[in-house]
């Protein structure tokens, strides 16, 4: 292959090559790495970040950012757990509602979607910068999680609910199935739906999208609502896996999600990036965490190394991106 083709190939599959190299290296360095069990463990651990990162990808493609997904994860999980365990009392109406497992699950996802919708409305109707709107929501949702739980974990959620995080089907953990289905869905949403195409247009050039007749506000609100709902799903997985809703669950998870998206090559300025890139970004972070753990690297060093992986990944992207003519 001529040099330019080689570099084009390299640029396109950079994340994939990095992932393969890491896998090979870790397989050589640790006998425990390349086993079916460990593979499934990695995937199960990755599934939570994957839910958040899929939503984050849409948000970043639209030209925004969402700092609140970790907090929404915590509140959604707590709501689902609380409703399942204690039901919902509305003293004013003298009502007490009991929730089935599916009812609680649905409520958890819906509450996530509602908070995400709140983000979208703040950003479009009230013209807040996404950074500010979701920074506010980060605090709001975390506060609600503490209020809802009274600061104590809600535990003992039952075997049915436990299936979400700990169950398996055909030998594969349920969270991995959830992840695979969601990834499949969002691959289609991003590439094959009007919504997906409009989303790229809004992120690539909001003014042009508006002058082409797209309903920019509705698209943005949908994006944040989806990100919130996906945070709700992640909240259910976390809560179910631990059989406990911790008010602090998901603390700073938004940062891992943003990291996965940018490692996957999505541009923070919007309009450029892929779901597949994010999937690879999530896997890279997951494999790295797992491998460093197997190699007995101190967790403190793990943080330092992860930080540099992010910096190097984006630096390589910047170096190979075409120079903006205006700058």
């Amino acid at each position: 292959m001529p040099a330019s083709k080689t570099s084009a190939f390299f640029a396109r599959f950079r994340s994939l090559i990095a992932l393969v190299l890491m896998t090979v290296a870790l397989s050589v360095m640790s006998e425990h790495f390349l086993t079916t069990d460990n593979g499934l463990t990695i995937l199960r651990q990755v599934s939570i970040n994957m839910c958040l990162s899929l939503g984050m990808t849409l948000v970043i493609l639209s030209g925004g950012i969402d700092l609140s997904v970790g907090a929404i994860l915590g509140f959604s999980g707590a709501v689902a757990a609380g409703l399942l365990k204690n039901g919902l009392s509305i003293p004013a109406l003298g009502l007490h509602l009991q929730f089935t497992t599916s009812g609680a699950i649905l409520a958890g996802v819906l509450i996530g979607a509602a908070l995400g919708w709140h983000n979208g409305v703040a950003i479009t109707r009230f013209r807040l910068p996404p950074f500010i709107a979701t920074l506010g929501m980060l605090s709001i949702a975390r506060g609600l999680a503490f209020l809802w739980t009274g600061g104590f974990p809600i535990t003992g959620l039952g075997a049915d609910f436990g299936q979400i995080g700990t169950g398996a089907w055909l030998g594969v953990p349920v969270p991995v199935w959830i992840m695979v289905v969601l990834v499949g869905m969002f691959l289609v949403v991003a590439k094959r739906t009007r919504f997906g195409r409009h989303l790229y247009a809004v992120g690539g050039n909001t003014r042009a999208a508006r002058l082409t007749g797209l309903n920019v506000d509705r698209i943005k609100i949908s994006v944040y609502t989806l990100a919130g709902a996906l945070a709700g799903v992640a909240g259910l997985i976390v809560t179910s896996r631990l059989d406990s809703a911790q008010p602090n669950a998901g603390l700073s998870y938004e940062l891992d999600a943003i990291a996965a998206v940018v490692i996957g090559g999505t541009s923070l300025s919007g309009g450029r990036g892929t779901i597949l890139g994010t999937v690879l970004g999530c896997l890279i972070i997951g494999v790295l965490n797992n491998g460093l753990f197997l190699l007995n690297v101190s967790p403190f060093w793990q943080l330092v190394i992860k930080g540099y992986v992010i910096l190097v990944a984006v630096a390589i992207d910047q170096a190979s991106a075409p120079r903006n003519r205006d700058s």
């Binding site: 009007r194 790229y200 690539g204 050039n205 003014r207 042009a208 002058l211 082409t212 797209l214």
Partner: peptide, 25 residues
Amino acid sequence: PEDRKRDGLVLPMSVAANASLACLH
């Protein structure tokens, strides 16, 4: 529009995606 780059084109998208944007249905 007058300013193509600012108001008309979605620069990160392909020729086809730009051309079909107003009639994606």
